[in-house]
Simulated scan of single mutants.
Amino acid sequence: MTQEVTNDATISNQPPNPRINNWKTFYRKIRKNRGAMVGGILIVVFIIVALIGPYVTPYGPYEQDYSVRLDNPSADHWFGADHHGRDIFSRIIHGMGITLYIGFLSTFISAIIGTFLGIISGYYGKSTDAIIMRIMDVLLAFPGILLALAIVSVLGPSTQNVIIAVAIFSIPVFARIVRGSTLSVKKLEYIDAQKALGASDFRIIFMHIFPNITSPLIVQLTLSVATAILTASGLSFIGLGAQPPSPEWGAMLSDGRNYIFDAGHVAFFPGLMIVIVVLAFNIFGDGLRDALDPKMKS
Rank of each mutant, 00 (worst) to 15 (best):
1 M>R: 02
1 M>H: 08
6 T>D: 12
8 D>Y: 12
9 A>W: 14
9 A>T: 10
13 N>D: 13
14 Q>K: 11
18 P>I: 09
21 N>A: 04
21 N>Y: 12
22 N>T: 01
22 N>A: 00
23 W>C: 02
25 T>P: 00
26 F>R: 02
26 F>D: 10
26 F>T: 10
27 Y>P: 00
34 R>T: 11
35 G>N: 04
36 A>D: 09
38 V>K: 01
38 V>Y: 15
39 G>W: 11
42 L>R: 01
44 V>W: 15
46 F>P: 02
49 V>T: 14
49 V>E: 12
51 L>P: 03
51 L>Q: 07
52 I>A: 13
52 I>L: 15
54 P>F: 15
54 P>G: 14
61 P>Q: 14
61 P>G: 04
63 E>I: 05
66 Y>K: 03
68 V>C: 07
72 N>A: 14
75 A>L: 14
77 H>D: 05
80 G>Y: 13
81 A>T: 14
87 D>K: 00
87 D>H: 07
89 F>Y: 15
90 S>C: 13
96 M>R: 02
99 T>E: 12
100 L>V: 09
102 I>T: 08
108 F>L: 10
108 F>D: 05
108 F>Y: 08
111 A>S: 04
111 A>Q: 08
116 F>G: 00
116 F>D: 02
116 F>P: 00
123 Y>S: 02
126 K>S: 07
128 T>V: 05
130 A>K: 04
133 M>V: 02
139 L>F: 09
139 L>Q: 02
140 L>A: 01
140 L>E: 03
142 F>W: 05
143 P>E: 11
148 A>S: 10
149 L>S: 01
153 S>G: 09
153 S>N: 02
155 L>F: 08
156 G>R: 03
158 S>L: 06
163 I>N: 06
165 A>N: 03
166 V>A: 04
170 S>N: 07
172 P>R: 01
172 P>D: 06
183 L>C: 07
189 E>F: 05
193 A>F: 15
194 Q>T: 01
195 K>D: 02
196 A>I: 13
198 G>Q: 12
199 A>Y: 15
201 D>C: 01
201 D>W: 04
204 I>N: 04
205 I>M: 13
209 I>F: 15
209 I>H: 08
215 S>P: 11
216 P>A: 04
216 P>T: 11
219 V>C: 04
221 L>M: 12
221 L>D: 03
223 L>F: 14
223 L>H: 12
224 S>Q: 11
225 V>T: 07
226 A>W: 15
228 A>Y: 13
230 L>S: 08
231 T>P: 00
234 G>F: 15
234 G>C: 10
234 G>M: 13
238 I>Q: 06
239 G>Y: 11
245 P>H: 03
246 S>Q: 10
247 P>F: 14
251 A>I: 09
259 Y>K: 00
259 Y>W: 13
261 F>V: 07
261 F>M: 11
270 P>E: 10
273 M>P: 02
284 F>H: 01
284 F>M: 10
287 G>M: 11
290 D>E: 13
290 D>G: 00
291 A>L: 13
292 L>W: 14
294 P>M: 09
